[in-house]
Computed example of a mutant assay.
Amino acid sequence: MRIALVVGLNYYEHGGHLYGCVNDAHSVKAVLERNDGGSVNFDCRLLTGTGPTETVKRGQLKDQISELFKADAEIALFYFAGHGHIEATGGYLLTSEVSRGDEGVSLSEILTIANNSPAKNKIIILDSCHSGIAGTPPEVSQLASLSEGMTVLTASTKDQYASEENGRGVFTTLLVDALNGSAANLTGDVTPGSIYAHIDQSLGAWEQRPVFKTNVKKFVSLRNTAPAISIDDLRQIAILFPTPGFSFQLDPTFEPEMKGRDEGMPDPIENNTRIFSVLQKYNRLNLLVPDGATHMWNAAMESKACRLTALGEHYRRLVEKNRI
């Protein structure tokens, strides 16, 4: 069971309205609900504050967070987009009715609730100002308090503001992009770690900096997208390259094109051209490079070899150990 509580607040009774948070929440819900192929992923509950007749109050939000993390789920995920506040006593998520920052839901309370959850994986994603303080007790500024299975991903550090552009949160735009496949590995899995890497690389040094805190033995996949290469083709890597550092010898029989062949060159061999097609896929994904040639076509026509890159060797080991 995978469950997610997705919250977006634009409306605040005492001013300081936001404009992109509700849209962000809808986007996050939409991408989490289904995997790339249409299979069910997360069972999402959406809370939005759009105006005076649709608000999210402190008690309601706290109750929903408590219900989320009571579940004995594979993954319990909480996403919040809205105002945040920080002071000496810690950080807060602000709800629709608050008139001062410390009337919001305490991040320390949220972490306590999540830390005690029976869920195997607890994930908190915050697109709010000062959210980077989540998981850090105010009295011990260098200590992160996360139980096993907990991951926190925030839009900015505790001292920064979260930005909006074109009616969307900058952080959430990158988050949704990552979940849609930009942060997927070769098997199509998107993990919290790969999401953070995608967001971190997309933001410049002068922009808001995302914060990532985790206490896990292994990353869980939050969404599955279409893999960049079929699993069957990827598994062939350990057959074609049976040992570390192995060089695969090519010759003109691997290249299916007749154009450009010198007189006397052997014709293509069907089985070899099938293998060459897989090798070319590896090359496009930076798993493999030709040795002594600029392109795979040249390597074949000049009877050169090809070898795995460091990334290719990584996936070869995974296949060899039956991890893929």
Rank of each mutant, 00 (worst) to 15 (best):
M1L: 12
M1K: 06
V6K: 04
V6T: 11
V7L: 06
G8P: 00
Y11T: 06
H14M: 01
G15H: 04
H17S: 05
H17I: 02
Y19F: 14
G20Q: 08
C21Y: 11
N23E: 08
D24F: 08
D24C: 04
D24H: 04
S27Q: 13
V31T: 09
E33N: 04
E33V: 05
E33K: 04
R34T: 05
V40P: 07
D43E: 15
D43Y: 05
T48N: 01
G49C: 07
T50M: 12
G51R: 10
Q60T: 15
L61H: 09
D63G: 10
L68A: 11
F69C: 08
A71R: 14
A73W: 08
L77E: 07
F80R: 00
F80Q: 10
A88P: 01
T89I: 09
G90A: 00
G91F: 00
G91W: 07
Y92C: 03
T95A: 12
S96R: 04
V98T: 13
V98Y: 08
V98D: 09
G101C: 11
D102V: 05
G104P: 08
E109A: 09
E109H: 11
A114V: 03
N115I: 00
N115Y: 05
N115S: 13
P118G: 02
K120V: 02
I123H: 09
I125D: 02
L126W: 12
S131H: 11
G132L: 04
G135L: 08
P138H: 06
S141Q: 11
Q142E: 10
L146G: 02
S147W: 03
G149C: 06
M150G: 03
M150F: 15
V152L: 15
T154L: 09
D159G: 04
S163Y: 14
S163G: 01
E164T: 02
N166T: 01
T173D: 10
L174Y: 15
L175F: 14
S182E: 13
S182T: 11
A184H: 06
G188N: 06
V190F: 12
V190G: 07
S194N: 05
Y196S: 02
Y196M: 01
D200H: 15
L203M: 07
A205C: 00
R209W: 01
T214S: 15
K217E: 12
K217R: 14
F219D: 14
R223L: 10
A226E: 15
I229F: 12
R235D: 12
Q236E: 15
I237W: 14
I239A: 13
F241H: 02
T243G: 04
F246V: 00
S247P: 00
P252G: 10
P256I: 03
E263S: 13
G264W: 06
I269H: 10
I275S: 05
F276M: 11
V278E: 05
L285E: 09
N286W: 07
V289R: 15
D291E: 12
D291P: 00
A293K: 13
H295M: 08
M296V: 03
N298R: 13
N298M: 14
N298H: 15
A299Q: 11
A300N: 12
M301F: 09
M301G: 13
C306E: 02
C306D: 07
T309R: 05
E313C: 04
H314T: 02
Y315F: 12
L318H: 03
V319A: 11
E320W: 00
E320R: 09
K321S: 14
N322L: 01
